[in-house]
């Protein structure tokens, strides 16, 4: 079952920035790109667990603030020579409102 949970409005997130959503499974980082695409991924770099939400957002990717791994927001995979991936979380718009699929996260976490 997909459980879509409202997390706020797209305008809550700065362009080329991110905000966190606290969930029972840990923090989800929700990103907004320069061209208003929104992505949600686990806020946990596959390298050493750095908070990806604190990184610099460029294109559809984020650079982790701890050791500069670059993570694709679309796939959750590390780009370049690094290997690893974080879980992605489905995002949906209802007008300005943003929803993420929480169950999907829970089931994959299980």
């Amino acid at each position: 079952m997909m459980n879509w949970v409202s997390i706020g409005s797209i305008s809550d997130i700065p362009r080329r920035g991110a905000r966190c959503v606290a969930t029972p499974q840990g923090k989800i980082a929700v990103f907004r790109t320069a061209d208003d695409q929104v992505f949600a991924i686990e806020d946990h770099c596959p390298h050493k667990g750095g908070p990806l939400s604190q990184g610099i957002v460029h294109g559809a990717a984020v650079t982790c603030p701890l050791h500069n791994w670059v993570i694709s927001l679309e796939t959750g995979k590390a780009l370049g020579a690094d290997e690893g991936a974080v879980r992605t979380v489905p995002v949906r718009f209802e007008g300005e409102r943003l929803f993420i699929a929480l169950e999907a996260l829970a089931s994959r976490a299980a």
Binding site: N3, V5, S6, I7, G8, D12, I13, P14, R19, C20, V21, A22, T23, P24, Q25, K27, V30, I100, L102, A106
Partner: peptide, 15 residues
């Protein structure tokens, strides 16, 4: 302000 606050807290009751 947005820098320092989570955007939302969700799903805790469910868990």
């Amino acid at each position: 302000k947005h820098e320092f606050r989570p955007m939302a807290s969700v799903g805790f009751a469910q868990a």
